[in-house]
Structure formats: C-alpha cells, structure tokens
Amino acid sequence: MIRFDRVSKRYPPGVDALSDLSFEVAEREMVVVGGHSGAGKSTLLKLIAAVETATRGTVLVGGQNVSGLARSALPYLRRRIGMVFQDQKLLLDRNAFENVMLPLSIAGFPPREAAQRVRAALDKVGLASREKALPVMLSGGEQQRLAIARAVVNRPSMLLADEPTAHLDNETAADVARIFHEFHDVGVTVLIATYAGDLFPGARRLQLDHGKLVP
C-alpha cells in the first residue's frame, strides 16, 4: 500500500528531516510511527499525502509514485487519504457540521447523501449533538475528534493521523485510540504518529531517530 524507497527529505535551510528511509506498509495494516520531537514523524506522513515532496528516493502509494505526481493529479490522491493534522486545521468560521461536510463537497457528493454521512461520522466520534458548534466552542478533545470525523467521512482506504491523542487525558485518549482501532478493524490502513504508542497495542511500530529508522 505504502512504500518508501531510500527516501530523504531536506527542508530548505539544510535540515535533514528524514534520511535514507526505506519501509513498507501493507494494506489493512496498522502502524505507529514513534520518535522524539523533531524526529521526522510529521514529515513522513506529509510525504505520503504529497503535502511535501521527497528530496531523494521514491514514495509509492497504491503503486503510484507520489513525488512524480502532476499538480492536477494531487487532489485525487488526497481524496483517497484521510488525514488528521497535528494542528488539526479546522475552519474556525464554520461549524462542526460544515467542517466535516467540506471533504464531501470537494469530492462532489450529492448534498443529501453527504448530510447523512456527515451525521454518521459525527455520531461515530460522539459529536452528534454538537453539529452546530463552532470549533472554538469545542474542548481540545472534541476538536481532535472533529478532525477525525472530517478525515474519515469520505471513507478513505487509508488514514494518517498526526498526534491525534496529544493534550488529551488518558480516558479521552483511549476513546480516540478506540476509534482508530474500529477503522482498522473494518479494513482501513492506519498510520499514526504518536509518542503514546501504548494506546495502540496491536500495531506495528516504526521508530524514528533524527530522521533515521531505528532497527
């Protein structure tokens, strides 16, 4: 499903975020990417969704070379991937319902079917009663869950989550982890960048250290 082949990523001033990284993630697998702050976890996820492009090496997603993708092909790659960003990237002037609706509008879903899906996704993360709330009216944990609802509403075959349990108390974090397990159980490939690897006991781990894979 995902394959990194000798991938390096250097950010402009000369920071090597990832160097010579090779690994593979099979379909329906659940993988936790660990490592210290600045190890390159976010960068790894961004390379998969082509938010950043590799400086060297190839990133294959579903057999497609992501770095070689034309600008016009990017949207279609991203629609197949559900992504939870470290900074969530919720739209502050739109309510919960509208935030979750956005990926469906983008994909061109019929409005009525889309509304049903949005409600189902909000229900799944326990926010069914908060659909009219603006993001600022939600607690940190609720915002995390809203971001997850937006990532999964499109029913992507692949879910990438960057620190989805940061700043959450143990109980809420376990709740969120359970949601990812549920998606894994129904066949979604899941990649989670996190310090809290213990929350995902069944997952395979990839440990990063200064942009290199720890064997």
């Binding site: 969704a49 938010v51 016009s72 990017l74 949207p75 279609y76 790659l77 991203r78 629609r79 992504m83 960003f85 990237k89 739209l91 502050l92 956005l102 990926p103 509008s105 983008i106 994909a107 937006r150």
Partner: peptide, 16 residues
Amino acid sequence: RAEIEVSQLLGATDGF
C-alpha cells in the same frame, strides 16, 4: 487563505 489551504489538503481541485 486558511480555507484555501485546508481545501487543497483535503483534495480540492483549483476549480473547486
């Protein structure tokens, strides 16, 4: 611009 950026990350085409 936040909306434009997020839309693009979620797979919006330039047309959208």
